[in-house]
Computed example of a mutant assay.
Amino acid sequence: MNTATAVKAATAGTVKLTIRQWATEDRPSVKLQMYGVKSLSDAELLAILIGSGTSKNTAVDIAQNLLDKFDQNLNNLGKARFDEINDVEGVGTSTACKVLTAVELGKRRQNAMAALKPDMGTATRIYNYMLPKMMDLETEHFYILLMNNNYRLIKAECISMGGLTEVSVDVRIIMREAVLNNATIMAICHNHPSGSLHPSKYDDMLTQSVKKACEVMRIHFADHVIVTDGCYYSYAEQGRV
């Protein structure tokens, strides 16, 4: 009996099929081994983390409920707190810890790849590098990206953290870090937790202040990139630096 037939039979009665009662080729762990990890849906991947179901729901059912809570969006799930995940029926403390661990490992892998002195020569590359660091922040964080003559990253450092809509930045600190790290090219970057791509008046003023300071120190000011989830604003691309 294949899984579809078994599900119909179970639905007609009162028996709830466990994953072990599914056709072998339909079980998430078997599919992974036979066809590779990319063959699995988001729910099936989560089901492997969850491990076992309950008397009411299979691990896949629980995974689907978890995804439903976060609008079927893994990015939303990645921002979730422990208590929000643990609140889903069938998700216990151990499972919530596993899900958060998997999310964090994904972020750390991105950071590890980015640690190879990447090329920061375009706004897109700056955005791709900074997004893992900024995507889940609830307040504004301001970073400087210090580079050599080939736009290879020397150092990315957060020099200020602020509120929901603004962060205070001291240009003197920015220039000191640039000089100490022998940077010849610099970009600045901060996030907008609100999701707005529109620079504020303070953003404009800060951009001009940093640009003028770089001119005095003979450091090329490459860009000011504003990061949101899924988008960015680049002063360079807009012809404003």
Rank of each mutant, 00 (worst) to 15 (best):
E84W: 01
A6T: 13
R172D: 11
V7H: 11
A123D: 00
T93E: 12
I50E: 08
I188Y: 02
L17I: 08
A12R: 15
R240W: 04
L32C: 10
F70S: 05
C97Y: 14
Y129Q: 12
Y143D: 10
K79N: 10
N76E: 06
Q21H: 03
R240S: 12
T228F: 06
T139V: 10
A43W: 02
N2G: 14
T122P: 03
D26R: 04
D26W: 04
P28W: 08
Y202F: 13
L17Q: 13
L206E: 10
R240L: 13
R152N: 08
H190K: 07
L32A: 14
A183R: 06
E157W: 02
K79I: 06
Y202I: 11
N148C: 04
H192W: 06
M217V: 12
D203C: 13
M186N: 04
I185D: 08
G36R: 13
T207L: 15
H141Y: 09
G13D: 15
K56V: 10
C231Y: 05
E215N: 02
A4I: 12
K16H: 15
S39W: 05
A178M: 14
Q72R: 10
A6H: 10
K31G: 15
L146M: 09
N191Y: 00
T184Y: 06
A43P: 04
V103M: 00
N182L: 03
I188Q: 00
G163R: 14
A123Q: 00
L197G: 00
N149M: 06
K69Y: 12
D83Y: 07
S41I: 05
Y233S: 05
D26K: 04
S168E: 13
E84A: 01
Q33D: 11
L131Q: 01
D87G: 03
K117I: 00
